[in-house]
Simulated scan of single mutants.
Amino acid sequence: MCGRYSLSKSKIQLEERFQAEMLGEFNPRYNIAPTQLVPVITSDSPKGFSFFYWGITPDFGKNKPVSQKFINAKAETVHEKISFKNSFLKRRCLVPADGFFEWKRLGKKTKIPYRFTLANEEAFAFAGIWEEYENEFGESNHTFLILTTESNSLVSEVHDRMPVILKKEDEKKWLDTYRSQEDLIKLLTPYQVDEMLSYTVSPLVNSVSNDSPSIIRKTSAPIDQFGNYTLFG
């Protein structure tokens, strides 16, 4: 599962990295959560950033608000699920990020937040799909979700699933509307473990109201959700 991620790069850095234009301003985000409006790059508009809500409203959920339930879909079955297969074939997107968070459980009550990034700490893209729906006021809204896969050996120490991080050279393939389903599925694999790193972060990340640089700083020792240091990280 991926339920929180960061995008702490500037507008200029993102435009340069993804070779896409971003209209309007963008403030770095350190604790992105479901239902929030964030930048994506779609197969319909690969040369520009669009701002979509995280939490997809499937085809059968017309006129419903942004969903907190459908924030991820399994890469192994996304092409088979009635709720997602049309989006998989027709509406794919890149979800820019520079890190994601998972929580390691220790016993029944204790959990410790970890941040996962690329080893070079550069921006990257999750594989995503998107949908369009009409709200109760007749306005058109756009939503997306992030595809997940089995964790590599680094992430599996904390969680059994991880978001699909696309290789840089595969990002255009993911947005290519002429790619076959078989070719697309081949892109949805765990990221190379030797090109990633992880570290513990502050429990401030637990609250979606916290969104500051302190969220992504490495802690000197693992800290649980109660603010207690622990030897077992």
Score class of each variant (00 low, 15 high):
residue 55 G to H: 12
residue 55 G to N: 07
residue 57 T to N: 03
residue 57 T to A: 05
residue 58 P to T: 02
residue 60 F to K: 01
residue 61 G to D: 11
residue 62 K to L: 02
residue 62 K to V: 00
residue 63 N to Q: 14
residue 64 K to I: 03
residue 64 K to D: 10
residue 64 K to C: 10
residue 64 K to A: 08
residue 64 K to W: 09
residue 65 P to N: 12
residue 67 S to F: 07
residue 67 S to T: 13
residue 69 K to P: 12
residue 69 K to Y: 14
residue 70 F to P: 00
residue 70 F to E: 03
residue 72 N to H: 12
residue 72 N to F: 10
residue 73 A to R: 00
residue 74 K to C: 06
residue 76 E to W: 05
residue 76 E to G: 06
residue 77 T to L: 01
residue 77 T to V: 08
residue 78 V to K: 00
residue 79 H to W: 13
residue 82 I to G: 00
residue 86 N to V: 00
residue 87 S to A: 13
residue 89 L to W: 07
residue 90 K to D: 09
residue 90 K to P: 08
residue 90 K to H: 15
residue 90 K to V: 11
residue 90 K to C: 11
residue 91 R to A: 11
residue 93 C to Q: 03
residue 94 L to M: 06
residue 95 V to A: 01
residue 96 P to S: 06
residue 99 G to Y: 11
residue 100 F to D: 12
residue 101 F to T: 11
residue 101 F to A: 04
residue 102 E to K: 08
residue 103 W to T: 08
residue 104 K to S: 07
residue 105 R to Q: 14
residue 106 L to E: 15
residue 106 L to G: 14
residue 107 G to P: 06
residue 108 K to A: 15
residue 109 K to Q: 14
residue 109 K to A: 11
residue 109 K to H: 13
residue 109 K to G: 09
residue 111 K to M: 14
residue 112 I to P: 03
residue 114 Y to S: 13
residue 114 Y to N: 07
residue 115 R to H: 07
residue 115 R to S: 06
residue 119 A to W: 09
residue 120 N to A: 13
residue 123 A to I: 10
residue 123 A to W: 10
residue 126 F to T: 04
residue 126 F to V: 03
residue 128 G to H: 06
residue 130 W to H: 04
residue 131 E to C: 00
residue 132 E to A: 08
residue 134 E to M: 14
residue 134 E to H: 12
